[in-house]
C-alpha cells in the first residue's frame, strides 16, 4: 500500500516537475486572478484587505480545478487508465498517491498566492495567528486534494469532463471555502473584533471534511476506476 502510494505520488510529481505546467501556466493564471481582483477593488483598499481571505481561497479553488483536470488528463492521454487497472496497484493507494501529489502542488501554489496577497492587498498575519493559518491551509489543502481527486476520477471517463468537473466539484467544496475563509479572517484579523480563537471551530470543520473525503475516496476510488 505505502509502496504503491509513493510510486504514484512520485510519478505525478515527476511529471509536473518535467512539464512545469504548474509554474509556467497555473501559477501565472492564479496571480493574474489576484491582480484582477486588485484592479476591481482598488478604489477602496479597505475592502480589498478585508476581503482578502475570501479572494485568496476563491483563487485557490479555481487553480485547484486546473490541477485536478491536469492530474487526470495525464492518465487518459495514452490509455493509462486501463493500465492502472491492470497494474496491480491498490486502488486506494492510487487515490492517496494522486491526492498527495495534488496536495503538494496546491501547497506550493498557496505559498505563492499568499505572498501575492501580502504584496498586492497589504494583508498581514496577526501575531498569534500563524498556527491557525497553517492549520487552516493544511486541512483545507487535504480536503481540496482528496475531494478533487475523487471527483476528478468520476469525471475522467466522460467526454464532457472538462466542463462537468467544475459543476460537480465547486458545490462540494463550498464548506471548504466557507471554513477556510472564516478561519483565515480570524488568523489575519481582517474582521474587526474577531478573536483568533473563533477560527478554530472552522478548522474542525475542515478536518472533518478532509477525513470524510480521504476515507471515502480510498474506498470509492476502485469502483470509480472501473466504471468511469
Amino acid at each position: 500500500m505505502w509502496r504503491d502510494l509513493r510510486l504514484v505520488a512520485a510519478k505525478d510529481l515527476r511529471i509536473e516537475q518535467r512539464s512545469r505546467v504548474l509554474t509556467t501556466q497555473v501559477a501565472p493564471f492564479a496571480l493574474m486572478v489576484l491582480i484582477l481582483f486588485a484592479f476591481a477593488l482598488d478604489p477602496d483598499r479597505g475592502i480589498l484587505e478585508s476581503a482578502s481571505p475570501g479572494l485568496f481561497w476563491v483563487t485557490v479553488l479555481f487553480v485547484s480545478l486546473s490541477a485536478v483536470q491536469r492530474s487526470f488528463a495525464i492518465e487518459v492521454a495514452d490509455g493509462g487508465r486501463d493500465l492502472l487497472r491492470l497494474s496491480g496497484l491498490e486502488p486506494a493507494a492510487i487515490f492517496l498517491g494522486k491526492a498527495l501529489a495534488l496536495a503538494v502542488q496546491l501547497a506550493v501554489l498557496e505559498v505563492l498566492l499568499f505572498a501575492g496577497v501580502v504584496v498586492l492587498y497589504g494583508t498581514d498575519l496577526k501575531a498569534g495567528g500563524v498556527a491557525l493559518a497553517l492549520a487552516t491551509a493544511v486541512t483545507a489543502t487535504i480536503g481540496l486534494a482528496t475531494a478533487g481527486t475523487l471527483y476528478g476520477a468520476l469525471a475522467a471517463g466522460l467526454r464532457v469532463r472538462d466542463t462537468l468537473l467544475p459543476l460537480l466539484l465547486l458545490p462540494i467544496l463550498t464548506p471548504v471555502l466557507l471554513g477556510c475563509t472564516r478561519a483565515f479572517e480570524a488568523a489575519l484579523g481582517t474582521t474587526v473584533g474577531t478573536p483568533i480563537s473563533d477560527g478554530w471551530p472552522w478548522v474542525a470543520l475542515l478536518v472533518l471534511f478532509a477525513l470524510v473525503y480521504t476515507a471515502g475516496g480510498a474506498v470509492a476510488f476502485g469502483p470509480l476506476l472501473e466504471d468511469a
Binding site: 510519478k11 515527476r14 511529471i15 512539464s19 495525464i74 490509455g79 493509462g80 491492470l86 497494474s87 496491480g88
Partner: peptide, 21 residues
C-alpha cells in the same frame, strides 16, 4: 489482472516522463 500483460492500441506512456521513468 496482475498476471496478464496487455498491449492495447494505446501504449499507456506519460509523454513528460523519460523512457526509463
Amino acid at each position: 489482472r496482475h498476471r496478464v500483460g496487455l498491449l492495447g492500441h494505446a501504449n499507456g506512456l506519460y509523454d513528460e516522463l523519460t523512457v526509463t521513468d
